[in-house]
Structures are given as structure tokens and as C-alpha cells.
Nucleic acid binder design. Structure first.
Lengths: 129, 129
DNA sequence: TATAGGGCTTCCAGTAACTGGAAGGTCAAG
DNA sequence: CTTGACCTTCCAGTTACTGGAAGCCCTATA
């Protein structure tokens, strides 16, 4: 299978697939003409990667997950540990964003948004020095 | 004032302050010895930038905010528009993260996390191909 | 058979916002 | 006069791609 077929079937951009090979996540075979020749297994791994990325796992975590995925003697505890660590990061990020959102939405609500210069948003940014 | 004093008083890293000068956010004077010499105004702008960044505004938005801040004939509507756009981005990000969190936390809950290989997390990643 | 197109290849550069480190000038204290 | 803490600039690396250039390969059609 050529790269654009794989892109169609996985939903990943062609560029991303090449990139994943560059950084060693996959190692598709090559045809005589130099074209990448993807197996069903490559396809599965790429789909796996796409899904893991869509859940926000970083590339390093994806690498580990893929290794565990391909290791039939893995312990599910190792997978869970990775997922929990990632969940903690997400929760951390959520807390930050919610904090930002609260502050910002309050400021937006109190700004008249007219042609006058007075602005509680700028006042806040300037005051918290 | 030298750069490390400014860093202390704004909470920004020295490197970040130099970076902000590089990209034209501030233009501190120079002493005879070549050292940056920060005015109170520079200090205010840096504090302003620090606060804006902490609310998640990107550098470009910060640049606009700083311009508005220094423009006494601004319209608060322009500030509000920037803030609302940023708020929309935050809400978008929050929606994505909450979605990730829900999926991931469900998967984590259903994973035994023992020394057996069976793992619903990997199963999910593999299935959604 | 020549050629036009589309797909494939590699490599280089750019993105956001810093951060780390190297090489070297400056200043105050002892 | 030396030591150590500052300061300077410049270069490289970070994350996960993405865009673009230059050029080979393959197929179909005139």
C-alpha cells in the first residue's frame, strides 16, 4: 500500500506518516522504486498512534504505548500507569484553563466594550504587577 | 535598573525579558557599558505582559494588548474583542480536554492494572482504527 | 514515443515561546 | 589583581508537525 492510501485509511496526513517513520515509530518496507510499502501491521500501528495522539498522549508516551501494544507479555499495570500520568497532566491543564477562563470571562463581562478608553481588562492586566 | 532586578520584580525569567526585547515587545535603554537599563515604564510593560501571558494570551495578542494599553485614545471594544476571541479559544481547548479526560478516565477505570496483559486501554486504542 | 499529470522521494525551513549553554566583557570586593 | 557574580550575544534544542522546493517514478493519452 502506498502512503496516500494509508493516509486515507488512517486519517493521518501524509506528512505526519513520514514524520512518524523519521522518528522511528514505524518502519514500513520499501518497494523497488523507493516508495514506502505499508503492511496491514503498519496500518494498525498508525491507526493506534492516531488514536493515542487524539487522546493527547505525547509522542514519547505513544512510543511506550506502541511498545506495550506490541509486547504480548506486557503487564496492564504499565499501560495504566502511563494513562494515569497523562490523565494527571490533563487535569492539571484543565485546572489552569478553568482558572484562566474564570478570570477572563469575569473581565470580559465587566468591560463595556464601547468606544471609550476605560477598560477593566487593561486595568487588571496593569494592576496585577 | 539591571535585568536581574527586573526579573526579581516582575517574576519573569531573565531569558524571557531578553526574548521580549528581541521580538520587539519592549525596548529598554542601554547603559554605557552595554547593559540594559530598564525604566519604570519598562517594568510596568513587562508586568503587564507577564499577567497577559498568565491568562494565556499569545504573544501576538500581547503585542496588541500592549499597544492598546499604551494608546490612551483606545476603544474598550477593541480590548474586549481580543479578550473574547481568546476566551473562545480557551473554551474550545477546554472542550477538547474535557472530552479527552472523560474518555481516558473511563479507560483507566476499566483497566485492572495488574501483571496480566489484557488491557482495555490498549484495546480501545487499537479498535478505533 | 513524447509528454503531461499526479504521486512519490528527500531535505530545508518555519511554527510558539521560550530555555540552556558557550564564549566572553564588566564590575565590586577583598 | 584575582575571584565571582553579573552582563552581553549567538547558537541550538524543545513539540509535533507543516509547507515548500527540487527532482524521480508511473500511467495514460495524443
Amino acid at each position: 500500500m502506498n502512503i496516500s492510501d494509508v493516509a486515507d485509511r488512517t486519517g493521518l496526513p501524509v506528512k505526519t506518516i513520514r514524520y512518524y517513520e523519521d522518528i522511528g515509530l514505524i518502519s514500513p518496507a520499501r518497494s523497488a522504486n523507493g516508495y514506502r510499502s505499508f503492511s496491514e501491521s503498519d496500518l494498525h500501528m498508525l491507526a493506534f498512534l492516531g488514536r493515542a495522539r487524539s487522546l493527547g498522549f505525547g509522542i514519547d508516551a505513544c512510543r511506550s504505548l506502541l511498545r506495550l501494544y506490541n509486547d504480548k507479555s506486557r503487564a496492564s499495570a504499565d499501560v495504566k500507569k502511563l494513562a494515569q500520568a497523562h490523565l494527571a497532566e490533563i487535569d492539571q491543564k484543565l485546572a489552569e484553563l478553568n482558572q484562566m477562563r474564570d478570570t477572563l470571562s469575569h473581565l470580559v463581562d465587566t468591560c463595556a466594550g464601547n468606544d471609550r478608553p476605560d477598560c477593566p481588562i487593561l486595568a487588571d492586566l496593569a494592576s496585577q504587577a
